[in-house]
Amino acid sequence: MIEIQNLTKEYGRIKAVDNISFNVGKGEILGFLGPNGAGKSTTMNILTGFISSTSGVVKVGGVDILENPVEVKKHIGYLPEHPPLYLDMTVKEYLDFCADLKGVPQNKWKSQKKDIMELVKITHVSHRLIKNLSKGYKQRVGLAQALVGSPEVLILDEPTVGLDPKQIIEIRNLIKALGKNHTIILSSHILPEVSAVCDRVVIINKGKIAAIDTPDNLSKALTDFSRFTVTVAGPENKVKDIISNIYGVKYLETGAKIKDDEYSYIVEADKNVDVRKPMFNQLAQQGFPILELKSLNLSLEEIFLQLTTSEKKEAM
């Protein structure tokens, strides 16, 4: 649905977006992840035709955005970082204006307006001036604006920013539901959000793509060791001795003291060796029972940090 090839945007000498390429399939929800200033908003602004790229190709539904911007824009709904609202209008007037601007036929608009307002739950504020709405409702009106004309592609720049936790969950569920018949690109710097909602994640750092994959694969690919915590009853030095002598254990650290002679340890071991069985046997032999064993998967957050910081090292 969306093809991006070698996209670059330069601001003078600074490369805000540096030669990125990726595709988004129809009906896919793609997460766009990166620290502040990584180039997320710039990329989205280019995709929607708000700014132009320095070089590279963007195609939406097979149409080049530079060759036929008007056609492309018809298929895109965009919620920018700051929702583009006219504060002096009521919600209803504003949505009517958006429909008018996007050329939605009058007869279709009436029922669509009702659907959209119900979907984002703003029906009860439709007669209020946007200026008097809370941040959360403004965000919803912004989202409603993106849905006007039911475009095939939705581009949402940090859609949950500034919302309270309950609203965040609501908006996330809404995005998931919309993903069934829309192609969505969603940017965020909140990681759980991306892993909860998206089919695929693009991690971007300093204008470059650091990784593209599904959230699950990303966490698998990046762990070249298995990692778990184990809580054992027994004196710290003896237990440590036993664990560290097991074949495959690469790293051992005392995590927390739970009570006297009861500690939790963080163990990292070779991925190809299952160290849990020998650990259990040997500790049991010595009379130090394992009270808890929990594997620690690398969270998206850690992957994100790992990717974005290893990039830094390369640059140096």
Binding site: N45, V70, E71, P80, P83, P84, L85, C98, L101, K102
Partner: peptide
């Protein structure tokens, strides 16, 4: 100033 420029420029209007 309000950012509504984005709305206008990303709409199908020339």
């Amino acid at each position: 100033k309000n950012g509504t420029e984005v709305l206008l420029l990303t709409s199908p209007a020339r």
